[in-house]
Amino acid sequence: MTELATLPTTREEDWRYSDGAYLAAADPAAIRQWRTLDVPAGDTHGESFTFLEDTSGTERLRVSVGAGGTFSCFAAIASGRYRRLELEVTLAEGAHFEFGGVTVGGGDAVQEFVTRVIHAEPHGTSNQVVRAVQWGKSTGNFLGRIEVVRDAQKTDAAQNFRALLLEKGAAANTKPELEIFADDVKCAHGAAIGALDDSAAFYMAARGLPPEVARRLLVQAFIGDAFAAMADDEAREAMLGHVLEKLGDAV
C-alpha cells in the first residue's frame, strides 16, 4: 500500500500526541496530502493560518526557500476537537524561515504544530516561537525538528515553546529535536510549561488593576510573543484579537 493509502497512528513518532480516534476515522488521502510551495531566490513570501471553526482537520505544507529568500508563517489554532498544522521547510544558502504559532483550547481539544526545518546550505537562519494556552482537559503540542546538513556552516536556528495551563487537567507536550552535521553553527531550543505567574498578577493588582484584567493582560502578552515578528501590524492585531476572543471567560 502507498503512503497515501495508509493512516498514521499514535505509534508513529510525529503523531505520538495526536488524537488517535480522529486518525482512525479520517480519510487517508486527506491526512497524508502535502501542499507544496517554492519561494524563489531572493523573494519573500508569507502564509497565515487561523483555525477558528469548530471542526477538526490537518494542514500540511512543504516549502523550499531559494538562496537569500524568506518564508514566514504565523498560525493560530483556537477551535476544533483536533487540529494539526505541519510544516516542512528546506532552506538554501542565506535563506530565512520565521514561524509563530499559538494554540488556545478548552474542553478535550487536541491542537498541535509539527515542524521540520532543514538547513541544506550555509548561512541559513530560522526562528520558531510557539505559545500554548490550555484549560479544561485540552492539550497543546509542539514537535519541532531542526536538521543541519553537512557543510551547512554558519547556520543560526532557534525554537522556543512555552505553555500556560489555566486549569488542572490541561496538558502540553513538546519534543524539540536537533540533528547537526556541521560544526560552525548556532542552534538552540527552549521549553517551559506552567501556570500564570501569581507574583506578576499581584504586582498589577497592587497598582489598581482588577484581577481578571491583570490575568487577561498577562495572557495577551504571553500570546503576543508568537506574533511579534509579523511585519503587518493590522494582520497581527487581527490574529491576536481572534485568539483573545476564543479565550472567552477562561481567564
Rank of each mutant, 00 (worst) to 15 (best):
M1Q: 08
A5M: 06
L7V: 06
P8I: 01
R11N: 13
E12A: 06
W15H: 09
D19P: 00
G20Q: 08
G20K: 01
A21T: 05
A21N: 03
A21I: 01
A21L: 03
L23D: 02
A25H: 12
A26T: 09
A26P: 10
A26G: 07
D27Q: 11
W34M: 06
W34C: 08
L37P: 03
V39A: 13
V39N: 12
P40R: 08
P40C: 07
A41N: 04
A41S: 14
T44S: 15
S48D: 05
S48F: 04
L52A: 15
E53F: 03
S56I: 04
A67T: 09
G69R: 05
T70S: 09
F71G: 06
F71W: 08
C73Q: 13
A75N: 07
A75Q: 10
A75C: 13
A76N: 04
I77V: 13
G80M: 06
R83M: 02
E88R: 14
E88N: 09
L91W: 03
A92K: 13
A92D: 15
E93L: 07
A95I: 05
F99V: 09
V102H: 08
T103P: 05
V104L: 14
V104N: 02
V104P: 00
V110E: 06
E112P: 01
E112C: 02
V114W: 00
V117R: 12
A120R: 15
E121D: 14
H123W: 10
H123L: 13
G124F: 03
G124E: 07
T125Q: 11
Q128C: 04
Q128W: 00
V129P: 09
V129M: 14
V130H: 14
V130D: 12
R131Y: 02
R131G: 05
A132V: 02
A132H: 15
V133L: 10
Q134E: 13
G136H: 09
T139I: 05
N141Q: 06
L143A: 10
G144C: 09
G144H: 09
R150W: 00
R162D: 07
L164K: 07
L166H: 02
L166K: 05
A172Y: 00
K175S: 09
F181C: 06
F181I: 04
C187W: 07
C187P: 12
H189P: 10
H189Q: 06
G190L: 01
L196A: 11
L196Y: 10
A201I: 15
M204L: 15
A205T: 14
R207Y: 02
L209K: 10
L209M: 15
P211D: 11
V213R: 10
R215P: 00
L217E: 08
L217A: 10
Q220L: 02
A221Y: 01
A221C: 10
G224M: 01
G224V: 03
D225T: 04
A229L: 07
D233M: 06
E234T: 15
R236T: 12
M239F: 11
L240T: 03
V243F: 03
V243M: 11
E245M: 10
